[in-house]
Amino acid sequence: MNNYIEATIHEIEFKVNGEEISMTIPANLTLVELLRQELRLTGTTEGCGVGVCGCCTVLIDNKVVASCLELAVNIDGKEVLTIEGLADTYQLSEFHPLQTSFREYEGFQCGYCTPGMLISSKALLDQNPDPSDEDIREFLSENICRCTGYDSIIMAVKSAAKKMNA
């Protein structure tokens, strides 16, 4: 019952990109703050801060989550995947096929939304290895990009799926 006395501070144990971490954090810390400020994993970006834009998307136990709305205490005992760990999930290569395809098809310009796009796309391909344009549009419908106009992103995801199925 000790943590009830100092309830503003919590001990958590979790995994980020395969690495086990235990640390003490304040109760009001969000997951994106934990990642960027405490762990210096600055690949995950924060856009709107209210769960709408999709920039801060990470995977918690393989499910897409908006890390700006998730309290960091909630990842206790869970596994988080951020953009920094994406390549390692695929045959320990330097880049994940999604990353190479986004580069080939120019699926980004400024790059701010890209980590969220890639993580969401990975979640999609995990569930649906051969998605149609419609599937991709639906799954990525709440990842907002103000540069590309989306077509190149959809082509990139399709090409990555093809590479991974080959």
């Binding site: 769960g51 499910k63 897409v64 989550v65 908006a66 419908s141 709440e142």
Partner: peptide
């Protein structure tokens, strides 16, 4: 309702 990443939580 909202998006998948919100409905997941």
């Amino acid at each position: 309702i909202a998006s998948i990443r919100i409905r997941n939580v």
